[in-house]
């Protein structure tokens, strides 16, 4: 195959790879005209190997999307280059009080330290001087004037210069979107956009996480860093935008995720528990999911105000 070969879907002499690449690029541009659609179908029907080359070209196209994790988006959605002056105390309290949906209990009187805890729902974004923090269900956050600490659970931080969030033994300065999760044994941070500087407690060595990178720290072991695929990032980021992304996930596991976020509980019979589903659902609409599962799996659904029973 010549390197400089012109590739065009219509080029009769093109190799199957060239024609497949041509069609994949053409489809990426926009919908096909009727005659193009016909030409593509004709080419696919000509030979089973054409269909294989086309499937493979589309798979390579998908794989090339991983370049996003290396090069990142053009501009992080939230990144203010100039430092923002510290917010006066009064505005901070006003912002903290605005988060009325939460169980907010001031930890100690007279100090700007508040403990926020969520039950079976995601919090509204909590405003701090340097951005917002959204808490996942069953999570706890201690918010102070200078910094906040994720005590347990998960949160999504949209930060700009000045934002400091702590979790476990790590201190983060995110400029962009950062997902944090903290359990007694492990802290995991995923940079969704922008960059995050981080360091360990009692250490002055800073590291940088770029968009698409994830760091995990378990006990005293050295931190582990890995890059995520775009689809992994989407799956991890899903809860913070109110979505549940299931990829070949068992019914039992999907139901347990819904049950963490909703009053109305989904019950799945043992016969269905291991059936697998793929799809994107709205986290706070367990009813929609139950209806979809009913249709896809041919299950029966019984509804009460408190439960959705699939069997």
């Amino acid at each position: 195959m010549r390197r400089d070969a012109r590739v065009s879907p219509t080029l009769a002499s093109a190799s199957p790879e060239e024609a497949a690449a041509g069609w994949t690029a053409r489809l990426d541009k926009g919908p096909l005209s009727a005659s193009e659609q016909q030409a593509l179908q004709h080419w696919l029907d000509q030979d089973r190997r054409h269909k294989g080359a086309f499937l493979r070209a589309k798979a390579i196209w998908q794989a090339s999307g991983r370049l996003a994790a290396l090069h990142g988006p053009t501009a992080p959605p939230v990144a203010h280059p100039t430092p923002v002056p510290a917010l006066p105390r009064r505005r901070f309290f006003a912002a903290a009080a605005a988060a009325a949906l939460l169980l907010a209990t001031p930890k100690r009187q007279g100090k700007a330290n508040s403990l926020y805890a969520t039950a079976n729902a995601v919090s509204a974004p909590l405003h701090t001087a340097f951005g917002t923090i959204t808490l996942d269900c069953y999570s706890k956050l201690k918010m102070g004037l200078q910094s906040s600490r994720l005590v347990t659970g998960r949160c999504c931080v949209l930060g700009r210069t000045g934002m400091i969030v702590k979790a476990g033994n790590l201190i983060f300065a995110p400029q962009g979107r950062l997902l944090l999760s903290c359990s007694p044994t492990q802290v995991t941070a995923t940079s969704i956009s922008g960059t995050v500087h981080l360091r360990r407690h009692h250490s002055d060595e800073w590291w940088t996480l770029n968009a698409g990178a994830q760091i995990s720290l378990t006990g005293d072991l050295p931190p582990e860093v890995r890059s995520l695929l775009p689809e992994e990032m989407e799956a991890q980021n899903a809860w913070s935008i109110g979505r549940l992304e299931a990829r070949d996930e068992s019914m039992a596991s999907i139901a347990s995720t819904f049950n963490r976020y909703n009053q109305r509980q989904i019950r799945v019979s043992p016969a269905l528990a291991n059936r697998k589903l793929t799809g994107v659902f709205s986290l706070n609409q367990p009813e929609d999911f139950a209806l979809a599962a009913q249709t896809i799996l041919g299950a029966r659904l019984t509804q009460t105000p408190q439960t959705l029973m699939l069997y």
């Binding site: 195959m1 390197r3 070969a5 012109r6 590739v7 065009s8 790879e17 060239e18 497949a20 690449a21 041509g22 994949t24 690029a25 053409r26 990426d28 541009k29 926009g30 493979r56 070209a57 390579i60 196209w61 794989a63 090339s64």
Partner: peptide, 27 residues
Amino acid sequence: QRECAAQLNISENIVEKQLARALVFLS
């Protein structure tokens, strides 16, 4: 593809052809 063309000041057709070429190469 349209935005790529605008950013590089080239035609959309060239963008499409170059993407196909990149795909052949990756393949």
